[in-house]
């Protein structure tokens, strides 16, 4: 059980990030609900963020990325917020025009 009892390293974080990333991708692929897809994107971004923070952490590895990891994670968070706002606005607009947020039905171009 050395894998579990050892002090955690970057790899452990990467694994968590990978799981979240995959969950996000699957979520994006399978959900028909526009907001569900949006949540998948959030998961994907978050999975990536874990990697950045893990690589940036001096605690996990002496040769770390340093502050760059945290800074990029910050940018990702902020941009994700912006992206969510726009996506939500699109979803609302779509809902207003089509009375649904089922993405499979969003196949016509004029709204």
């Amino acid at each position: 059980m050395s894998f579990l009892t050892d002090p955690v390293g970057v790899s452990h974080f990467l694994l968590v990030g990978a799981v979240m990333f995959v969950c996000g991708v699957v979520c994006m692929a399978t959900k028909r609900n526009g907001l569900g897809v949006l949540m998948g994107i959030e998961l994907v971004l978050n999975g990536a963020n874990i990697n950045f923070v893990a690589f940036g952490s001096k605690y996990l590895r002496s040769e770390s990325l340093g502050l760059d990891g945290q800074l990029i994670a910050l940018f990702v968070i902020v941009l994700a917020a912006a992206e969510a706002a726009v996506a939500l606005a699109i979803a609302l607009n779509f809902y207003n025009n089509h009375a649904t947020i089922d993405v499979d039905r969003a196949d016509e171009l004029k709204g």
Partner: peptide, 10 residues
């Protein structure tokens, strides 16, 4: 997890 990795602000 971020807190654990020492990234309090993040």
């Amino acid at each position: 997890l971020f807190f654990l990795a020492g990234a309090h602000f993040v």
